[in-house]
């Protein structure tokens, strides 16, 4: 059975990163991960920080994204992410260092703004590492 596909567009302010027919996508929204198949009802949501995955002919692809907005339509999904990185573009050692730094900051500070910032940095680093790891399988 041929799976129904839809168009997935992932763009950052600098360029269009992905434009492909996919059969399934899983998108990290601010309020949680959402799964999208072809024919999904129109939906708007803010993006969170995390790993976006999608299937092209059964093969899983993975991209680290942070912030922005996603528009879902029955025939297409448009992801407008403030940052988006392919696994091959991610510097693992830098992400690891960033994660360590963020974790240390989380231990020491308790103030609201700094805490949220460190938490976001940690999330970003974790998403990057997860996406980078997806290359190896």
């Amino acid at each position: 059975m041929a799976l129904e596909t839809f168009e997935l567009e992932i763009a950052t302010p600098e360029r269009l990163l992905v434009q492909e027919r996919v059969s399934e996508a899983e998108i990290p929204c601010a309020s949680g991960q959402i799964g999208v198949l072809a024919g999904h009802a129109p939906l708007l949501s803010e993006l969170g920080i995390g790993e976006l995955t999608y299937l092209v002919e059964g093969k899983k692809h993975s991209i680290a994204i942070a912030g922005g907005v996603v528009e879902v339509q029955p025939e297409y999904v448009r992801v407008l992410a403030m940052t988006a990185e392919r696994p091959e573009d991610i510097d693992t050692s830098r992400a690891q260092a960033a994660l360590k730094r963020a974790m240390e900051r989380l231990e020491t500070i308790k103030e609201n703004i700094d805490y949220a910032r460190a938490l976001n940095a940690a999330k970003r680093a974790q998403a990057r590492l997860r996406v980078a790891a997806s290359l190896r399988f």
């Binding site: 129109p42 939906l43 708007l44 949501s45």
Partner: peptide, 26 residues
């Protein structure tokens, strides 16, 4: 288009406006 809003529109808008300013500068 009539969307399902994951977040209330006003909240979504206030989170998206700052990005819009950056995009205009860029």
């Amino acid at each position: 288009s009539d969307y399902i809003y994951e977040q209330p529109p006003d909240q979504l808008l206030s989170n998206l406006l700052p990005h819009y300013v950056s995009i205009m500068v860029y």
